[in-house]
Design a protein around this nucleic acid. Structure first.
Lengths: 144, 144
DNA sequence: ATATAAAAAGACCTGCATGTCTTTTTATAA
DNA sequence: TTATAAAAAGACATGCAGGTCTTTTTATAT
């Protein structure tokens, strides 16, 4: 469903949030190690998320990644939008360039609930809620 | 959701079925034109579908693509499996290598219904049922 | 002030999905 | 039996997601 880049992004943000709660600001090398992602590429992805104002960073000694307002929840939708693009949830599931209620593809009506349930899910779930699940040991971030 | 290749495959098969009902065996050039897909690449995709025994072909004059048993319905799942691979509906939505009920990712429970509704849909829909919708003018195959 | 730890930046690489071009093979109509 | 229309086959091209490497910039501890 989601690209690897988006998966890294979500896992990285969850880890950052968990560490922030402990008063830490992890760097991308630590993050990559903990979420089992390629180190340099994770740096790139975090750079993009920083530019998209989803997370903040501090250069220099003692720097790292952190959330400016940890209480302001970030939906997965926001992350997906930033990485995959705004059209992600709008494209026709059948590949037609023009597809709407007036001129529907043969999957139009049946694809809609699938896309909508996915859309609903990524709007309900936030980086914070996933982090909480992990803190409560109800879920895990990596494969170790 | 689905790759372009899979989209071309489904559209091509639907068009072939519609033409077969008219007693025709379309070639890949005609198919590509009608479903608005790249001509040569569509030939490639149909070659693969032929090898996967999803559709049949005849070389030579008067040849083209056709279904051996048009009454035997082909689910979209079968096409997706052939093009995207068997793992398509099995991968963790969070990107974890190991993710199961014992060791779930934080999206495990919420992703399952999304994936399942998609899975259900592609198992219910068949090339034939989509073709029927088009024949009844309830849907369209291309963007013209 | 200086050394250092960190992110930012950008050049580069790789593999695969996607797509094109040309040649070969084959069935059949004439 | 020959010409032809068609798919098969395979070499080649392109673009982008995913990934690596090196250099630059910056904050801060010392």
């Amino acid at each position: 469903m989601l690209g690897k880049t988006t998966e890294y992004a979500i896992r990285a943000l969850v880890y950052i949030h968990i560490q922030n709660m402990e008063g830490e600001r992890p760097g991308f090398k630590e993050i990559a190690k903990m979420i089992d992602s390629p180190e340099q590429f994770t740096g790139k992805v975090l750079q993009n998320l920083t530019r998209a104002n989803i997370v903040s960073s501090m250069k220099g000694r003692g720097g790292g990644f952190f959330f400016n307002e940890p209480t302001n929840p970030i939906t997965l939708f926001k992350v997906i939008e930033a990485i995959e693009g705004k059209e992600y949830f709008l494209k026709c599931g059948f590949g037609l360039k023009r597809c709407d209620t007036d001129n529907p593809c043969p999957l139009h009506d049946d694809y809609a609930p699938v896309r909508d349930s996915f859309f609903k899910m990524v709007n309900e779930k936030t980086i914070q809620s996933l982090a909480n699940k992990i803190n409560k040991h109800e879920a895990t971030l990596n494969r170790l």
